Computed example of a mutant assay.
Amino acid sequence: MDTITLRLFQSEDAPWLIERHGTLYAREAGFDGTFAPLVAKIITDYLARHDPAREAGWIAEAGGRRLGSIFCVAQSADVAKLRLFLLEPEARGRGLGQRMLGHCMDFARAKGYAGMTLATHESHRAACALYARNGWQIAQTRPVRAYGCDLLEQTWDIAFH
């Protein structure tokens, strides 16, 4: 694989990001067609309202091919929210997820956030293991019916010291 770079998300990345979330989550988690429109709304809101001084999104890329995404947005004045973390299957297991998570967390620290939060599902075991290895802790777990599936939704938090 070519050298992987992380670059800032651009509006031209939106169709790819929406499609890949919809396709991968359908294939890997059984999510229905309601998931991609949620991703589209998140991206539309980000493009319309994000504060570039405190929020950013990145695309991992190699040889002009997009391999993943991660976003850091404001949840509140003191807490950042990790969103839209995605890795293409062929990019997994090579340390790229760790690199992207570290980059996002470093950004949040540099922008003065006291901590971060994220929402995921218990079924995303590899991502949850990555969060745990980096000091994140489960703050809440609750059963939900979403995207055509019965899921255990988790909120993970980390405080910066």
Rank of each mutant, 00 (worst) to 15 (best):
A26Q: 10
D32L: 07
A29C: 10
Q98L: 13
G148P: 15
A114H: 14
E90Y: 01
T141W: 01
G30S: 07
Y46Q: 08
K111T: 09
L82H: 05
Y25A: 13
H103W: 15
I18R: 03
A127E: 00
G33E: 03
A26W: 06
R54T: 03
A48K: 04
V39N: 03
I158N: 06
T117G: 13
E19G: 10
Q10T: 08
V39M: 05
K41F: 04
L82R: 06
T117C: 15
Y113G: 01
F160N: 03
I18M: 06
Q154M: 12
A62N: 02
K41V: 07
E153R: 14
A129F: 03
A91S: 05
A108P: 00
P89S: 14
S76V: 10
M116S: 04
P52F: 00
A108K: 02
L82P: 10
L82K: 09
V144G: 05
T141V: 15
V144H: 09
L86Y: 10
C72W: 00
P89A: 10
A108W: 02
I158P: 06
M1A: 08
C149Q: 12
P15T: 08
R49A: 15
P52N: 00
E19S: 15
G30I: 02
H50W: 04
G64I: 04
T117F: 15
G135L: 02
D45L: 15
T120S: 12
G102Y: 08
A132E: 12
K81R: 12
A119W: 13
M116P: 11
I42Y: 11
T34A: 01
A48R: 00
T3E: 13
E28Y: 13
A114D: 10
V73P: 00
A132H: 04
H124E: 08
R54H: 07
M116W: 05
H161P: 10
G22V: 00
R7G: 05
M100K: 00
H21V: 12
Y25K: 11
F85H: 03
A29R: 14
D51Y: 12
G22N: 04
A126I: 15
L96Y: 01
M1E: 07
E122L: 09
A40L: 10
R94E: 05
D106M: 10
V144D: 09
H21E: 04
D2A: 15
G63F: 11
L84A: 11
G68M: 00
Q154H: 13
L38C: 05
E90L: 06
L118P: 00
C104V: 05
H121M: 15
A132G: 07
H124M: 12
S123D: 12
L86P: 11
L84N: 05
F31N: 01
A119Q: 14
R27L: 06
E153F: 13
G93S: 00
C104Y: 13
M116I: 05
D32G: 06
E55L: 02
P52A: 02
Y46G: 03
D157A: 13
T44K: 14
D32I: 01
R94S: 07
A114T: 06
R27Q: 12
G22R: 03
E153D: 10
V39F: 09
H121R: 02
V144L: 09
L118N: 02
H121L: 12
